[in-house]
């Protein structure tokens, strides 16, 4: 990955200096090896903190709704797709944000690498283009970055920002994958097998809501799952309660999920949360020929009515 940190710093400095942004939301070095962390830069002197590497996985558009003033935001392809939706849903005003688009080559899953290190303490990480050289007391491993990408990044077809004010570096080559092979494969299983898979995944959930809170499109002021009057969903980690939370959340995100994978990255207990959301995306594509977060002027399929909308779900009585 070309070092884009210095270009990002330059751009951030320019925006702050000219007063075109009050704050820049970007990444700084994390406190752990193989880790970057969100940061909020308000002074020109602090732009030196900004970095860019393959560990900048967080979807920073999550912070846009809360942010005050004019905001400059570092955004990958998926992050810009979320911004498109946020603007469409009138949560963010286009003129309030400056998008510093950064082409992405897929983000590396720190936990996959940690597993390869088998609990040995990492003391140094060296970036050698396509590989990371990881060393520690009892450790000397070379890891190919593209073998440790997040599952969402492996099937991503929008590595380049879809909307931006400034583009950093040169565009990435888009992956030519059949977008929904995973969904088709899962659909091919028997209903018992699918039920078993989903209920097993759900059984791991601890209801910490990291998935929801990391999601850029989960911005409801009061989530249905928190409501107490009336209480829609039980609060236990029993199968019914947990499954209901995940299914309802997934349906609420139908046609809105931009498949950034923030939910899955945030989950501490490896729940395959994307499984349900991917199915929603595939259905929305099939029923409405719509892919989320690409075009600011394209109406959202589930908030618009067209006389020729697919009505496969209607029952003939």
């Amino acid at each position: 990955m070309a070092d884009l940190s210095s270009s990002i710093r330059e751009e951030a400095k320019k925006l702050l200096k000219k007063g075109e942004a009050d704050v820049i939301i970007g990444f700084e070095k994390g406190s752990l090896p193989l880790c970057a962390t969100p940061c909020f830069i308000r002074n020109e002197a602090d732009v030196e903190k900004l970095i860019w590497n393959e560990f900048c996985g967080n979807n920073l558009s999550r912070y846009l709704i809360k942010a005050k003033g004019k905001v400059g935001i570092i955004a990958k392809g998926c992050d810009t797709r979320a911004i498109v939706e946020l603007i469409k849903e009138k949560q963010v005003q286009r003129e309030q944000i400056v998008i510093i688009g950064v082409p992405c080559e897929g983000m590396v899953d720190r936990k996959q690498i940690m597993m390869r290190c088998q609990g040995n303490k990492i003391t140094n990480v060296e970036d050698r283009d396509e590989r990371l050289l990881i060393t520690g007391d009892l450790l000397n491993v070379a890891v190919k970055k593209d073998e440790c990408l997040y599952p969402g990044c492996q099937v991503c077809t929008n590595r380049n920002p879809v909307m931006y004010d400034v583009l950093i570096g040169s565009t990435s080559e888009e992956q030519q994958t059949d977008e929904f092979t995973d969904v088709t494969n899962f659909d091919g299983k028997s209903s018992e097998e699918r039920w078993e898979y989903i209920t097993h995944e759900i059984s791991k959930c601890i209801r910490c809501y990291a998935c929801r809170n990391a999601c850029p499109l989960c911005y409801c002021k009061e989530c249905f799952v928190d409501t107490t009057q009336p209480q829609w969903v039980g609060k236990t980690t029993g199968q019914t309660d947990t499954l209901l939370f995940h299914i309802m959340r997934s349906i609420h995100l139908a046609g809105r999920c931009v498949e950034c994978g923030a939910c899955e990255r945030a989950c501490p207990v490896t729940v395959d949360i994307r499984k349900l959301n991917r199915k929603m995306s595939a259905d929305v594509k099939k029923l409405f020929d719509y892919k989320t977060g690409l075009d600011i002027d394209q109406p959202a399929p589930l908030s618009t009515f067209k006389p020729d909308d697919s009505e496969e779900f209607m029952l003939d009585i």
């Binding site: 909020f40 910490c208 990291a210 809170n213």
Partner: peptide, 13 residues
């Protein structure tokens, strides 16, 4: 706390 997501990971683990 500006970057905090206010999720329950820290407390539940």
């Amino acid at each position: 706390t500006e970057k905090c997501l206010s999720c329950g990971v820290c407390t539940y683990l």
